[in-house]
């Protein structure tokens, strides 16, 4: 819907709306710098964030060398979590970028009543990309029902891509039954040893 459209329009007005952010050096502020796991600095322009409202932010990761969908999406989530920590938000929610006609089922709270600090399966940002030799952007939404690169195109031929998500900073006690809720400290600690900025 509107969110997906907004995400897809991002690159046109990106220069005006977004500011590249320096990479946080460490996910764990409680340990000494010599021993912390570190996530390397991203090159300029790889990561950006823009404020959409008082509590809503759009986070975007851009790259030219596609490696794996999972790696890019995890890096984006890591940066979203670091942003939430910066904002001193105890939790944040993903705003799903759904469009009319999307067929992916809506996420549900765990039917067995379990509560979560985060659910990786529901971190679903939207994609757009250019293939080598093509000037046109293509889009892919995880909510469309289509598999990633199910159109027969080879992801190795991707020459540029953008992954983006809108998140809303939340206050108070985390709604830990909300499948789109993420606790930023838990997320960042889970991902700090896994992610690297894309090229």
């Amino acid at each position: 819907m509107a969110t997906l459209s907004a995400c897809l329009m991002l690159s046109a007005g990106a220069a005006a709306q977004t500011a590249p952010k320096p990479e946080p050096v460490s996910a764990s502020a409680t340990a000494s710098p010599e021993t912390d796991p570190t996530v390397p600095h991203a090159k300029p322009g790889v990561y950006s964030e823009s404020k959409q409202s008082a509590t809503r932010f759009r986070v975007t990761v851009k790259g030219q060398t596609f490696t794996a969908r999972d790696a890019m999406e995890k890096y984006l989530l890591y940066r979203a979590a670091m942003l939430a920590l910066e904002q001193r938000s105890p939790w944040f929610t993903l705003v799903e970028g759904r469009s009319p006609g999307d067929t992916a089922p809506l996420p549900q709270a765990d039917p067995s009543g379990y509560h979560y600090s985060f659910r990786m399966a529901y971190w679903r940002p939207v994609w757009r990309y250019k293939l080598a030799g093509s000037a046109a952007w293509s889009t892919w939404s995880p909510f469309s029902g289509a598999a990633f690169f199910a159109d027969g195109k080879d992801p190795k031929t991707v020459s540029r891509y953008e992954v983006s998500a809108d998140i809303v900073m939340q206050k108070g006690r985390m709604d830990d039954r909300n499948p789109l809720a993420f606790e930023p400290r838990a997320v960042s600690e889970f991902l700090v040893n896994q992610v690297n900025p894309p090229e």
């Binding site: 765990d110 379990y114 509560h115 600090s117 985060f118 889970f190 040893n193």
Partner: peptide, 21 residues
């Protein structure tokens, strides 16, 4: 998140399995 990590000693390295509260 990868093989070889004992996750009772390193619980942060496993995704949250969820807990009834």
């Amino acid at each position: 998140w990868k093989k070889g990590i004992e996750t009772y000693i390193n619980p942060f390295a496993a995704p949250d399995p969820g807990q009834p509260q």
